[in-house]
Measured scan of single mutants.
Amino acid sequence: MQRVNMIMAESPGLITICLLGYLLSAECTVFLDHENANKILNRPKRYNSGKLEEFVQGNLERECMEEKCSFEEAREVFENTERTTEFWKQYVDGDQCESNPCLNGGSCKDDINSYECWCPFGFEGKNCELDVTCNIKNGRCEQFCKNSADNKVVCSCTEGYRLAENQKSCEPAVPFPCGRVSVSQTSKLTRAETVFPDVDYVNSTEAETILDNITQSTQSFNDFTRVVGGEDAKPGQFPWQVVLNGKVDAFCGGSIVNEKWIVTAAHCVETGVKITVVAGEHNIEETEHTEQKRNVIRIIPHHNYNAAINKYNHDIALLELDEPLVLNSYVTPICIADKEYTNIFLKFGSGYVSGWGRVFHKGRSALVLQYLRVPLVDRATCLRSTKFTIYNNMFCAGFHEGGRDSCQGDSGGPHVTEVEGTSFLTGIISWGEECAMKGKYGIYTKVSRYVNWIKEKTKLT
């Protein structure tokens, strides 16, 4: 034993070699072989497995989906700052455009905790909710729209109204504003409101030439003092309507412009014939205590009207009353817009006519005020429907199939267009061939041609 100890002390290297040989010859039971080890760690190889990531292109799944990435790591994937920024906006807080917040056709661009709407022409605001041009839906104005110097929408209202708090709607500024039905039992019968379409306001006024200088022999019209197929109006439903009495009662109609003036057809009036105007009328054979009678003290036909040349060209006249009318729910003026808007309103496509005229061709006159909704007829169809001249200051309205029309005794009465609950004068009943005849239409004086003249002559002093 002493000898062994001496050998170990003198030859430590020998001992180490012996131990190493023993270990190498022993069977290893701690580690699995290569094949079995792979069965336990069965993990798919990654895209760049075996390579240094710093030297390969980034992978979106590896960089940002398996674990949260930084902007720089995302930049490695896209290799483009702009594309990385677009991805980053949604990656950080989701897609803010998912709810489609942009209105009126706006395009949404996502941002971090926010979004941006790219608005089409005519709109602005956070969600493109603000109209900035009158060309689109009248700028959301209830009545009139004008573009300011910086191309912003400025709404306005006709006389007797003021802008509401929203700067879009119009509200009454006087007790009985024009064009409004205020009798409670008839307010439910107000005709369907007309909503502004998209309009090209630059070209809204037709490029028409008034044929002022045409000389033409007097034409022989049949029954051209021209509501057939209409309905009984309720008291106060058309408070701007008046009836004219002269040699015979209810020979023509008219509309209240203001307390002192009536507008009617020029062919209705004769110099030297006494005319009485009755406002607030409903049943011409009954006294309903809503009527107001006034005498006409002055007749002003349009300066281009000449019955000797043509009885229905420039067929418009103004009547001055001896005493002002007292405005109330049964006696209310009709609204008159400017030339541009009167023309736009007419193009809405349908209007209402009213009167006490004959209820059928050569038949009896109506006792109760009649009204009828009539569609506008395109000019080409209008011209083809008659052998008589249709001037540019006239328009056609009615039904091709016949059966409904204005008729004798309705002449001078109103053709009105309702705009968001307020009625505007767009025409004056003038003439036609018979009444409600198939293929024939009622012919009306186009008020847009005469609004400046009306307003100039009827100013209240």
Rank of each mutant, 00 (worst) to 15 (best):
L19A: 05
T225F: 07
K438C: 08
K311A: 09
V326S: 15
L14Q: 03
Q57D: 15
E116M: 15
D249W: 00
E98K: 15
F71P: 11
I316L: 08
N166K: 02
G13K: 14
C69P: 04
L346V: 07
N80C: 04
N80Y: 04
E159I: 07
I7C: 06
A366P: 14
K446M: 07
E433Y: 06
I443P: 02
D93I: 12
P324K: 06
A265K: 01
V243N: 04
D111M: 08
T190F: 08
G272C: 00
S430W: 03
D131R: 09
I428L: 13
K188F: 13
Y371L: 13
L14K: 03
F238K: 03
V296E: 01
Y22E: 02
S182K: 06
K446I: 00
S217P: 13
G272W: 03
C382Q: 02
G403V: 11
F345K: 00
Q241G: 06
E27A: 07
S11A: 15
C134Y: 03
L60V: 15
C407K: 05
S25N: 09
E418N: 14
N328M: 01
C141A: 00
T287S: 12
D410G: 06
C134L: 03
L130W: 07
G122L: 04
T209W: 09
Y391I: 04
E208L: 10
E281Y: 08
T133A: 15
D131I: 06
I336Q: 02
T290A: 05
V377A: 08
H34A: 12
E285V: 10
V277G: 00
I256N: 00
T225P: 11
T84E: 06
I262S: 01
C157N: 00
V30S: 15
E27P: 02
Q216R: 06
Q90L: 07
N59S: 08
D322F: 00
D33Y: 04
S220G: 11
I297S: 02
D249T: 02
A250C: 06
R379N: 04
N104I: 02
Y201W: 11
Y312F: 12
S255M: 03
R180V: 04
N59C: 06
R384I: 07
A164Y: 03
Y201G: 12
W261G: 00
H302L: 01
G106N: 02
T386V: 07
Q96C: 06
L24F: 09
S114K: 06
N295I: 02
A337L: 01
C155E: 00
S70R: 09
E53N: 07
A149H: 10
E259K: 07
G21R: 04
L325C: 00
G13L: 14
G403D: 15
I300G: 01
D198R: 11
R3N: 08
I309S: 07
E420N: 09
Y352T: 05
E66N: 07
T186S: 05
I7N: 15
A266E: 00
L367F: 13
V451N: 03
M65I: 12
R3Y: 08
N104E: 03
P235Q: 07
T264N: 00
G125K: 03
R3Q: 06
A307W: 06
E54R: 08
V199P: 12
K446D: 08
K459W: 05
C396K: 02
D338M: 04
A164W: 03
I309N: 15
I112A: 15
R373E: 05
K89P: 15
Q408E: 08
E67P: 05
P101T: 06
F238W: 07
R226M: 10
A266V: 02
T426Q: 02
N313L: 10
F55D: 09
C69E: 03
F360T: 15
T342P: 00
